[in-house]
Computed example of a mutant assay.
Amino acid sequence: MVRETPYFSYAVGELPRGCQLCVRGEKLVLFTTGACPRDCFYCPLSEKRKGDVVYANERPVKTVDEAIEEAKIQEAKGAGVTGGDPLARLDRTAEYIRALKEAFGEGFHVHLYTTGALATKKALERLYDAGLDEIRFHPDLFNPNSRLFEVEIRNIRNAFDFDWDVGGEIPSIPGQFERMKWYAEFLDKLGAKFLNVNELEFSETNLRALIDRGYKPISNESAAITGSLELGLKLLEWGGENTSLSYHLCTAKLKDAVQLRNRLRRMAKNVARPYMEVTEEGTLRFGIAEYDDLDELYTLLVEGAEVPEEWLYVNRERGRVEMPEGVAVELADAIEGDVRFFIVEEYPTFDRLEVERVPLP
């Protein structure tokens, strides 16, 4: 009954619509705030996102228009609204959802993750009226004695008063099988559609808390937690036999090797300059030259080396002149002195993360 998907994940039943778009790289990741009513020990949120900030993918945004522009670059067919807890900034979250729906149409699928702590009937009505299609709850399942847990469970019930898809999304934490089963049964009795289970991973911010609790990585090359995947599979096998929910076990490999790569590919073809090569992985590959004086370097390349101006781009923000890879290889062999040539690969994202730099002799 448990099947392996083409995306290195595992499923029982049909993947939620939000996941179907996500694995194809078609979902904008809309982070509406780092604020959250909880402080989970396994939270992977980076330090720069723990404040009250907004991101569309890797792009910090100040306005709805910037988020819409990012969605256009990605050719997104939907958005996943996340945080923190997006309901901690309800007005903002509803505004962004409504604006995306107005910009791209009702077919633009929006799902949202929330703890449930702030999901009052009025809050849920605001989200529904804004156009939210799918809501996923992650209550304080692994701390059932917390003051928020009872509130979250009560609020989850409210979500079934609206005509949208309701499900759960939780991490697979070794040693917590009984709590995970309890939540699956709870959702099933309410008539939820699905339960997503995420393979637990180390991050810079949860590393110490996980190590202190005895969790270990599966290898030196992976951030995935030993036993998390196996526990997730165990839950899917049990759930497929004992509930009517659909299940999706989202693996660390899916996020890195499939979802991110597919999103990068969609973005790369829209942001690549003529001198950039789009690789199979969705990165941008090209040559660069660095020198203390960019204007002097540009003059040297155009007048001294006779490189056509249309082959060059002066990137003052990065302090370099960019060019086709083959041109950089030829120039590195011909120009002597302090000019430094490299072949670089970057993500086509707003932050243009550099993933490789090869110096040319």
Rank of each mutant, 00 (worst) to 15 (best):
K216L: 15
E309R: 13
N262A: 13
R208K: 15
E281K: 14
D163V: 11
A223P: 07
A11I: 04
L124Q: 09
A56M: 00
L195E: 06
I335K: 02
F186Y: 14
P217T: 00
L21I: 08
E106F: 03
E69A: 15
K189P: 00
D338H: 09
H138D: 14
V64Q: 03
G18S: 12
T299N: 14
R92P: 07
A209Y: 11
K122H: 12
R3K: 15
P174E: 03
A88P: 04
A119D: 06
E4S: 12
R316N: 03
G25R: 03
S46W: 03
K122P: 08
E150H: 10
G304T: 07
L249Y: 12
M267C: 07
C40G: 11
I135N: 03
C40R: 09
V166W: 04
R89T: 07
A159P: 09
V110C: 11
D129C: 06
A224C: 03
G287Q: 08
I73A: 02
N242L: 04
N270S: 07
E125T: 07
L132D: 11
L187P: 07
D129S: 13
S222F: 02
I173C: 03
V358S: 09
G107S: 12
V23M: 08
R157Q: 13
E66G: 04
V23E: 11
G191Q: 09
L353E: 12
T82E: 00
E4Q: 14
L30S: 01
M267I: 14
M323C: 05
Y183Q: 01
S146W: 07
R265C: 06
C40Y: 10
G34F: 05
L249N: 03
R17V: 09
K101L: 02
E14D: 14
E322W: 11
W164L: 15
D85N: 10
E201K: 13
A67M: 02
E280D: 13
F177K: 14
V12C: 06
R352Y: 06
G105E: 02
F350V: 00
L260C: 06
D161G: 15
Q259I: 05
W182M: 11
A67P: 01
E178K: 13
R154P: 01
A252C: 06
D351L: 13
P60S: 05
S172H: 05
K216V: 13
L312E: 03
L233K: 14
A252Q: 11
L87Y: 06
E290K: 15
I288F: 10
L235S: 01
Y7L: 08
A224D: 12
E75H: 08
R285K: 15
D65I: 01
G240N: 00
E95T: 13
K101G: 01
F177D: 07
C22G: 01
L312I: 09
N270R: 13
C36L: 05
V64C: 02
D165A: 14
E201S: 12
A305H: 02
G227D: 02
I225V: 15
Y10V: 01
S172E: 06
I156N: 02
W238S: 07
F202Q: 11
E4C: 08
T33A: 01
V307A: 10
G167K: 11
N57I: 09
Y10P: 00
A94H: 10
L132Y: 10
L233A: 05
L21K: 08
A11G: 04
T279K: 11
E185G: 00
D65A: 15
K234M: 14
L231W: 08
G304W: 10
E241K: 15
G214P: 04
I135S: 02
R157I: 00
V355Q: 09
G227T: 03
L141C: 04
Y313D: 06
I173S: 04
